[in-house]
Design a protein around this nucleic acid. Structure first.
Lengths: 403, 403
DNA sequence: GGCGATTTGTTAAGCGGTTGAATTATTTGC
DNA sequence: GCAAATAATTCAACCGCTTAACAAATCGCC
């Protein structure tokens, strides 16, 4: 009986040092989440730590250039005025990279969450050798690094495909990649990736983090519609990766078990109803370059083209059926439509909402919101960069202890 | 920018006391997960704590009657013989309760995971007033408590319906319950529920924990087929409850969006293909008492009744389509078929497996297993009781510090 | 049988980190 | 100008882990 492998839960032992690491993060996040500069005393009150401890922790964070003291805020009541604390804009930054079907992107996000640099290099990357694409990306990345006044804590790369937890790209069908070890193949001038290393993740996952970063709710399902359809699941401010790291593959959830065949080998997958090519086909438009399909569809829909409107309604319905299923299973309060679906949200959302409302069991008392994404194409790159600074925020001690 | 509410992550501050609480749990779980009695030195080596610290922690756990010293194990090599440590069978126990359509159940599980007492009271509970049912359950529970030599740390109740995180039963359609506040209405003779309180949870969730307890993998999807169909999701040894606590409602995931109408108001829900009544209908059998349908189906299938075999194959296919979708979304390596599906697994599994294998995107390199549940009807009650002792195991300090 | 090697478990000193109280600093209000 | 109020720092005390030394119990080898 009872044979869970390993110890489960909070794994390791806890020494006093871990205690400080935890509290360091607690204080840093408290400052980060405050809307305005906040005093040590307020941090102490909010965290439950004593002011003495908070002072000591803050001192360390300031020395590590993660926090700054600001001018006292507008006075209120008697007493010594509080010294404000805020995140240091030049303390650390994260580098976010993205390889996609028709562009490469790089951006730098600082600790405060501000996007400090952002560059996109258009170009069709389908079927090109990974090495060539990665070299071009490395150049773009090196430029981004060169512009940063803050030290770069690490980099994260977004790829439209299945990525193993260790960073190996299992397959990125639309790029034509299979088994690419990005971590070994990418080296960026002016940036030593050894310490934090390069993280690689699915484009939908990182775009979801980008939305979180941009102020979306703390729990939501992000749907990334492109040639394929992926999803990133954010629960309670954290990315949910499933048991083995390949969560969110909603593009191959069945809409109709005996529907049209899909390139995955199954029948009636969502991609065959709401993928970019399926929508174009249903609308009677010719497939073109991957980047501009959404625009063409939006223009035609705006003009009232009936075939396009019908195609979008049908796609929305299929999307709604699948999303309702997902919500029934993981019970998220919000669905964010991203990628291709952002410019088409006006026409897709009604059908999606209607399906979700009738099919989600708990919809009667726990409403489910369907909203378009706030970020555009850059969502994944911003999310990737944001995930780096988020990692520093979650465990500042590791960053402070760097060689 | 960046406006996650609250602090997220590891919530509270960490004082030295929390440190000890954590390590107390670490040591206890290490002993629990060992297959045989284990020495202090081995615990130290496995956890990374020093032997001195482990000794101190063990002393506290022995004083609290959670651990026992056993005879030294068969010798091996030189050196002073080790004193074995094992979970104390009489240190604490958990009470598990279940209200279901056609029976009530109560059981007691001790810290080692052994079921010390188990009682089932058959009887149709559909449409009966909740108060009456709860009184009958309280009697059953009081008997269970009376038999226990170990102090009862708390109780958990399994209900076939939607349960709010605070324990309010939102709705249990097959019982005819709506908005029942079990925690207020249930009081058990001889057991003070005040300290740990009474937890209430969905039957599928707790049955999933029961399977975990019975040694299933540490990540799996448990499917509970009864009149309705629910699922419990276990990831990395932990129950996954979704963002708002209502996860796993797979009974109303669509198999065919324009299929037969479902009592939930939508069309083509899984319940209409693989629910108890749907299978009986498709098999041409009359609905009977809820408890015996599975048996009748299994007997008829055994005899080779073609209508029944076809009905089961069809149900298996529908189940497979939906489960494949769920696996695509949360990427679990194992699906456990429970409840009604256990006796029917022989006929359901092939269709389920075939659908899962063709529809799960990652199935080519990360196989998905489909297995029948190990526990029978009692899974939920055992899981409920197990969840109580599991809570003690995860945070022994709280139990040791009881008034 | 005795002695060293080996492993377990305990004890005592030390150190890191938080607490709590006292102290200093800086403002408002009367 | 002084009391009240609030912010931040200093310092002794305490708590829990670690290190290192030691005591206990067994094996193996001569």
């Amino acid at each position: 009986m009872t044979a869970t492998t390993g110890v489960g839960r909070g794994a390791g032992p806890v020494r006093q040092a871990s205690l400080r690491e935890h509290n360091l993060g607690l204080v840093l996040r408290q400052v980060a989440n405050a809307l305005a500069p906040i005093s040590r005393a307020a941090v102490a009150a909010a965290t439950g730590l004593t002011r003495a401890t908070v002072s000591s922790l803050v001192e360390e964070l300031i020395a590590g250039r993660l926090l700054l003291e600001t001018e006292p805020s507008p006075r209120s009541g008697a007493g010594r005025p509080a010294v404000g604390l805020a995140l240091a804009p030049d303390g650390v930054a994260g580098l976010g990279l993205e390889v996609n079907v028709d562009y490469l992107a790089a951006c730098v996000v600082d600790l405060t969450g501000a996007v400090r640099h952002s560059a996109v290099l258009p170009g069709d990357r389908r079927g090109r050798p990974p090495g060539e694409t990665l070299r071009a990306l490395a150049d773009l990345a090196a430029d981004a690094v060169a512009t940063s006044t803050a030290p770069i804590a690490g980099a994260t790369l977004a790829v439209p495909g299945l990525v193993r937890p260790d960073g190996l790209v299992r397959t990125a069908p639309n790029l034509g990649w299979r088994g690419v070890d990005v971590r070994a193949d990418l080296c960026i001038r002016g940036l030593d990736l050894a310490p934090a290393g390069l993280a690689v993740d699915n484009e939908a996952n990182l775009a979801a983090l980008g939305e979180l970063h941009a102020g979306a709710a703390s729990s939501f399902l992000y749907v990334s519609g492109e040639v394929g359809i992926g999803a990133g699941i954010v629960l309670d401010g954290r990315l949910f990766r499933g048991a083995r790291g390949f969560s969110g593959e909603i593009g191959h959830v069945a809409v109709r078990p005996d529907g049209p065949p899909c390139r995955c080998g199954a029948h009636g997958c969502l991609e065959q109803y709401a993928g970019q090519e399926a929508i174009l086909r249903a609308a009677g438009l010719v497939p073109g370059r991957p980047g501009e399909a959404a625009g063409r569809l939006a223009v035609a829909a705006e003009r009232g083209n009936p075939a396009v409107l019908a195609a979008l309604a049908e796609a929305g319905r299929a999307l709604g059926v699948v999303l309702a299923g997902v919500v029934n299973v993981i019970d998220v309060p919000t669905v964010v439509l991203g990628g291709l679906y952002v410019p088409l949200a006006t026409w897709l959302s009604p059908a999606v909402r209607s399906e979700v409302d009738t099919r989600v069991l708990t919809a009667d008392w726990e409403s489910v919101e369907v909203v378009p994404a706030r970020l555009g194409v850059r969502a994944a790159a911003v999310g990737a960069a944001g995930s780096v600074v988020r990692a520093v925020r979650d465990d500042p001690a590791r960053w402070l202890a760097r060689g």
